[in-house]
Computed example of a mutant assay.
Amino acid sequence: MSEPTRGPGDAGDDTRGDLAPALELHGVNKVYPPPTTVTALADIDLVVDAAETVAITGASGAGKSTLLSILGTLDRPTSGMVRIAGTDTSAMADPQLSAVRATRLGFVFQQFYLLEHLSVLDNVATGLLYRGVPAGVRRERAAEVLRQVGLAERMRHRAGQLSGGERQRVAIARAIVGRPAVLLADEPTGNLDSATGTEITQLLAGLADDRTTVVLITHNADVAAAMGRQIHLRDGRIVEDSHPYPAGRDRVR
């Protein structure tokens, strides 16, 4: 099997997946084996174009986290095909999946997972630690994205000195410092007050202007409404999709 092609942000590659959808799932099923034997996802067909912003909603147990894990190649489907920026990941070995995650995907979680004793700048620079980027370049890119998320004045502070909203901005900066094609976020406003959550939602929605696709899980109706597309899951199936067929795109099957 050939190695995965270079992703956005790799040296000499400034593409954003213009010729292929950012994400494709076709006939995806996820069944957890006994003793539970739970069908978490059933017959999922989903295509997300570059620079879309998508909210995934549904009750607890609807399959949202499982879907996000499969989109992020953190879990494998029981059956079906998964493409990331045109690359079929379904039969990839673990090292190849790790390469896809490192070069094409960024992750933001409800918990911030920052290194409290490090500066904000160094926390963001760790997002490039395993990509062979020289230390000086890592810090330059980290400073650039911190300015993008509105933390230019805080980059020398330690992460432990920041507010909750500032910490989430740092987490977002760390996720996008590698210039991923797709940013996946799991309840990114869940630990924030409503005003700060609105700020973070606006920041995430604005990332699409830089050709980054944003897919997030949320229970918050206001957060979902701020995304360009809303997908609702029930019992592991997509039961509502506000924009299933974006205009001008021929679906690759």
Rank of each mutant, 00 (worst) to 15 (best):
D13P: 02
H157R: 10
A152N: 12
H232M: 14
G136W: 03
D241T: 11
D14M: 11
A185G: 07
Y113R: 03
A59V: 06
L25D: 11
E166N: 06
D122C: 09
L46M: 12
D75T: 12
L216H: 06
A225E: 14
R251T: 12
L115W: 10
L184T: 04
I217D: 01
Q148G: 01
L192K: 08
A59Y: 03
G206L: 04
Q202K: 15
T126P: 00
G236Q: 08
G164N: 07
I238S: 02
A226R: 14
T78E: 06
L105C: 11
A55G: 05
A152D: 14
A50S: 15
L151R: 00
A91W: 03
R6Q: 02
G206I: 08
V124N: 01
A208N: 00
A205M: 15
R237T: 12
G136K: 00
A173R: 00
A59W: 00
L203N: 08
T89I: 12
R167I: 10
V82F: 07
Q230N: 14
L105M: 10
G248K: 09
S69F: 02
E116I: 11
P246F: 05
R139H: 04
D94P: 09
T198E: 15
L68K: 02
E24R: 15
A171D: 01
A181H: 09
I238Y: 02
V214K: 04
G7C: 04
P8T: 01
S242C: 03
I238V: 14
D193Q: 15
L46T: 02
T218K: 09
G86P: 03
L105W: 11
D10M: 09
Y32S: 10
T5C: 11
R104I: 04
R131H: 09
L121M: 05
K30H: 06
N220D: 15
L118G: 10
L128G: 07
D13A: 06
L23R: 05
L146S: 04
I172D: 08
